[in-house]
Design a protein around this nucleic acid. Structure first.
Lengths: 176, 176, 176, 176
DNA sequence: TTTT
DNA sequence: TTTT
């Protein structure tokens, strides 16, 4: 159930190969960064301007497996999901916040040729033999907490996703 | 022009009255925080769970004036916009990031009664006599960067309303 | 699975009370018409113009029960779904087509006051005692085809509320 | 201005080359049909099922020119727009209705390789030398009525199309 | 870090 | 009529 609508729709390109990890439960978690960009001419100078926006996207479970297997650096992808801002502590113990899109639907874009030319080297894993397309949808259950990879329990809010213990290592994963 | 789609759709309630400032150019900038929430039952314990997500939304120019005048704490609102992550430096000079929704469209929800009961005290400003509705759409020009006038951007959460501890108290903050 | 994205998002008001029927399987099917409108000034004459668009929305199963119970003429509602064009034959045997939005998510808008003032007389049915909110989401199973039980699908408009001739009269139909 | 939200988002493939015509005003109007499809397994029989949905999309003015020039049969495309149901009379004078998506934004998907392999034979027209991408956005003015039905462009006049004269000829254009 |  |  929900009160309110929290919906994000992205079409963009993966900045790098997806990273897949596993939660203690065994469920997969895949992270990607998607770029969208916008260009315009400066009104004063007439100079062409461009701004690229990077979006952190996280997939869970089955969707994480599919994303991990089929997406690659440069892949064009449609993602639908919701915004989630996670709180974590940096080395100095200060609260910091990261906003991500928790994906509920994903679809690869660009047909066969495109996919064929992407040359998938070393797929992260197998999602099973029966999946043959570039589409996947998350079950509508609430996204699981993202406490894979963690050494100690999260200190703060109970029902929220656990703050990954060692956010330094997580932090190192953030390319910006 | 753009490459990619970067779209956010929110329906939620304002956590507080909007804050309107002005850029050197004279253009208005209005910030609000919108809450969306989700509730479910824990699969193990069966306990009801709730998570409220707070979204920082920024309006520019005409849309900022309308938002500043018509929205109030508790207002239910539809917002469409795009994600933008801004980089700023905290006191210690460290890079930090804040993700906001730059609104391109806004519409007040909940009809006349609702609006009437919201008792708009001290409207921030006038948007002119001919505006009579709860709808507004931004011109499609790229949003200006938002470093007008201010010393340090605040991080996402500190200046936001606190996440309510339970739903009853949250309800009390909202006039319906 | 899907190839492609087929998504509709509507926020509007119900033109009349919902109609709920039952499929042979026992599953509920609810139909509503939602109005959205747009107004502008004619560029030549400067005259105010308005266009109201009516959307046929169909809900299935659990969502149909909730829509049937909670929505009423005038209710403001958020609907998300997908487009489906159904083919049928008119009396003369000619093929005709009707486009509907098959809802996958629904949320009532306008808070308690709003809902309270809508005075729900004769709810179509009961959806059970434990539902207390204005939100519902369809399971992701493909919607069943809607030719249960009935002889001839009606064309799109005849059974819809008439488009109001002007905005004042339209207002009178809606309880706010 | 608007009351309500009327939004459609499609990602799909063009069923055939776009058709571009010109309104008396000189503004272009382009029609395409976009397919989206969904597949699933029948719950009883376990048989794989597929349903393809066809969406009529109409572009106006600049967007129509771009769509006409860059899209081709098979092109994968993102379209955002709004639903509009038009009323028209068939040969026997009966009222009939057609629902279309009036596009406000369009973006070609699938990158260079993809586009290159689509081998654009006979582009419908020129949209000018400075357009080099697969993206376009409509001005936010209300969609004009659709009375193309003229063979000759009247190149000079302002971009707002006139009100339609009749729809009989339009009838002939509908491929279903 | 992607893409055009 | 597309696409997988």
């Amino acid at each position: 159930m929900a009160r309110g609508i929290n919906k994000v729709i992205l079409v963009g390109n993966c900045g790098q190969d997806p990273e897949t990890r596993y939660m203690p439960s065994g469920g997969a978690v895949t992270n990607i960064s998607i770029a969208t960009s916008e260009s315009w001419k400066d009104k004063q100078t007439g100079q062409p301007q461009e701004r690229t926006e990077w979006h952190r996207v996280v997939f869970f479970n089955r969707l994480a497996e599919i994303a991990g297997e089929y997406l690659r650096k440069g892949s064009q992808v449609y993602v639908e999901g919701s915004l989630r801002t996670r709180k974590w502590q940096d080395q100095s113990g200060q609260d910091r916040y990261t906003t991500e899109i928790v994906a509920s639907e994903m679809q690869m874009l660009g047909g066969r040729t495109e996919a064929a030319m992407q040359g998938r080297s070393q797929p992260s894993q197998d999602s099973g033999p029966d999946y043959g397309g570039g589409y996947a949808q998350q079950s509508s259950a609430p996204a699981p907490s993202q406490n894979y990879n963690q050494q100690k329990p999260a200190p703060s809010t109970p029902q929220q996703p656990q703050t990954p213990s060692n956010f330094d290592s997580f932090d190192d994963d953030i390319p910006f």
